[in-house]
Computed example of a mutant assay.
Amino acid sequence: MSDRAFPPALAAALAVDFDYLDGEGVDFEPYDQFEALEETAYWLPLWTEAKLDPADFRMFGSDGTGGYAGLWSGAVVFFGSEGEAGVVASSIGDFLWLLADGSGPMEAVEYPEQESKPSPEFTAVAEQWSDTPRKTAAEVVAEARARFPDFVEMVTGPHSG
Rank of each mutant, 00 (worst) to 15 (best):
S103P: 02
D27C: 06
W72E: 13
L44M: 12
V16Q: 14
A50G: 10
G23R: 10
S119N: 13
R58Q: 15
V16S: 05
G23I: 10
P118C: 03
E107R: 14
D19H: 14
S73F: 05
S119K: 08
E82P: 10
F95A: 09
Q33K: 08
E38W: 04
F28D: 00
A75M: 12
A13R: 08
E110W: 12
L37S: 13
G104E: 00
R58A: 13
F60R: 03
D101N: 12
Q33R: 13
F60M: 12
G86I: 01
A41H: 07
S116T: 13
F18W: 12
A89E: 10
T123R: 15
Y31A: 14
G67S: 08
G74Q: 13
A41P: 06
G83L: 10
P112V: 06
V77H: 01
A126S: 09
A108W: 01
V109N: 01
V109A: 09
F60L: 11
V88N: 08
V87R: 00
S90N: 10
E107I: 06
E84C: 13
S73R: 15
A108M: 05
Q33D: 15
E115R: 15
G66Q: 08
E39K: 09
A124K: 11
G83S: 08
L44D: 07
E113F: 02
D19F: 06
Y68A: 14
S62D: 10
E82I: 05
D22W: 14
F28M: 04
L37F: 07
F34V: 02
A36K: 12
E113H: 10
T48W: 04
M106Y: 06
K51A: 15
E39L: 03
M59F: 10
P120S: 04
A9V: 02
E24P: 04
F18A: 02
F122L: 05
A41I: 01
A124R: 14
S62R: 15
G61M: 04
P54N: 11
L14Q: 05
G102K: 08
Y111C: 07
E110K: 14
Y31Q: 11
D101C: 03
V76P: 00
G67A: 06
G70A: 08
S103H: 10
E49R: 12
A89F: 04
F78R: 08
K117N: 10
